[in-house]
Each structure stands twice: as structure tokens, then as C-alpha cells.
Design a protein around this nucleic acid. Structure first.
Lengths: 126, 126
DNA sequence: ATATTTGTTATATACATACTATAACACAAT
DNA sequence: ATTGTGTTATAGTATGTATATAACAAATAT
């Protein structure tokens, strides 16, 4: 599991971290029970401040992807509150799909796109 | 076409505006050639500053949803650069679908969700 | 026992972004 | 001439992001 920061991106560091870790879990590069590097270690590795990593971990905890343990550090533990997740995803999707409709992208095209991304995330492919 | 601001949201006002206008176009509540209220008028209506509305309009122009005309104001004009739009949507989708996979939401469930939102945006339903 | 490593909390600083407030400008319509 | 467009400029405040140091409590390792 390699995490990198794009220092030129307009996306906040802690958001970049959060996203990459979520993608890592989706790809099964990191699995239930695995632990992430400590905030200090990861911060050192990628060259950013400890508090920025801590912010990412805290958000991942709030969103139900990890549990923070004083002994082991941050441990992957996905709470599968599916209903809550679906509602959140629906909200995110609304704006994206409105954009798609404006740009004349059909529902079928989105279906294909979704399927492609799903298979990209298959453990075989990453 | 009614635009409202959630003053308690953590989303920036100009992003809220942008999103609502994109959704308005998707729903055909506002159509190609229609013009949005002037920055001053809309700002007055919803109780925010002129420059914030201007920022939303400028972004909508950059993203290819409106053209700004000194005479008519902001006129809906969607440039359908489909390829560019698809690439952008793919990027947005990657994180959302990673999230979905983590939360055990299947590809089929996402397909249904997408179809539902598409039909919600049908002019009949809004 | 002591030292080390965890997450956690506190304070302070620097910088960028978001929002507001006034003001003025160029251009077109009335 | 006056009014209404978008546009630009400047300034101020508030919030968010990222950094730097420092310290704490709890668990582990030596």
C-alpha cells in the first residue's frame, strides 16, 4: 500500500490521503484487521505533518473505515452500515449525474463506466 | 427555477449555487438559451454577496454550462465536449465507487441507483 | 523500573480560500 | 442621459489547511 501526495493538487492533503486509503481498501490492498502506519511514521514517509495524517485518520474513523487503537494504531475495520452508505453515495451521485445528463451522456454509458471501475477495483487488477 | 442557500452547510455558497444550476439544467427547468438572473439580482434574492454569485457563474462558464454576455447576462449554453466530461466524471466516480465497494454495495445496486436518479431527473418528475 | 511508541490534546503561526463591502469601469439597451 | 449588464480592483474579516513544538496517558518492549 503506497500512499503519495500530489503537492500541486488543489485537493487538501488529508483528503488525498483519505481517498487513497479508501481505494486501497476497495482494492483489497489493505484488508480488515490490517493496520495503517502510525501517524508519525506515515507523515515522515510522505513528507507532511503529523497532524495532517492524524486528520485523515480521524475522518476515516468517523466515516467508519478504521478503528483507532492506542496499541496497534489505526486498524482497518469497515462498519457496513449499508443504508447510511447508500444515502451518502446517492447525494454524491446526484450532482455527478446531473452533470452527465447536461453533457448528453446516457444512462447506459454511465452503467458501462460504473462496471469498468468496479472491475478495475477487482483484486486481480490492482 | 428556485435557488436556495443552506447557510448551515459546510459546502461553499458558490458550490451550492453551481450544483443547483447544473441540476436545474439536467431537469430542463432551465433550457438552452434561457438566461439566469443577473448576479446582482440573484445575490439580492437569496441574501448573499454579488461576488459570490459571480464566482458561481464564472465557474459555470469555465465548465461549459453558460456563456456570459454583457447584454443578456448569463445564458445557458452547454458545450458538449463529451470526452472531457466523461473523463471528469470517471475521476469523480472512482472515489465514490471505492467507498461503495468498501461498504459491500454491489455493482448492480449502483446500477439501480444510477437508473433511479436518471429517471428522477426526467422533466416529468421535476 | 525505564524507555519507547501509540493516539490525543493544546498552542501558536503562516498561508490560502470564502465571503463580504464599496467602488469604479466599459459596453449595450432604453 | 440613465439604467443594467458583466468585469475588475481593493480591503477587511472569518474560516480552513498545514505546519511546528510540546506535552500527556496508555500500552509495549527492554
Amino acid at each position: 500500500m503506497i500512499v503519495t501526495i500530489d503537492f500541486n493538487s488543489d485537493e487538501a492533503f488529508y483528503i488525498q490521503l483519505r481517498n487513497q486509503i479508501i481505494i486501497g481498501i476497495a482494492c483489497a490492498k489493505i484488508r480488515e484487521g490490517d493496520n495503517l502506519p502510525s501517524v508519525r511514521e506515515l507523515a515522515e514517509d510522505i513528507g507532511i505533518n503529523m497532524h495532517t495524517v492524524n486528520k485523515a485518520y480521524t475522518i476515516l474513523k468517523q466515516e467508519g473505515y478504521v478503528k483507532l487503537d492506542r496499541r496497534k494504531g489505526a486498524v482497518i475495520s469497515v462498519d457496513a452500515d449499508k443504508l447510511k452508505a447508500i444515502n451518502e453515495i446517492m447525494e454524491d451521485m446526484k450532482v455527478i449525474l446531473a452533470k452527465a445528463i447536461c453533457k448528453n451522456i446516457s444512462c447506459e454509458e454511465i452503467h458501462k463506466l460504473v462496471s469498468n471501475i468496479y472491475s478495475e477495483y477487482s483484486p486481480d487488477n490492482c
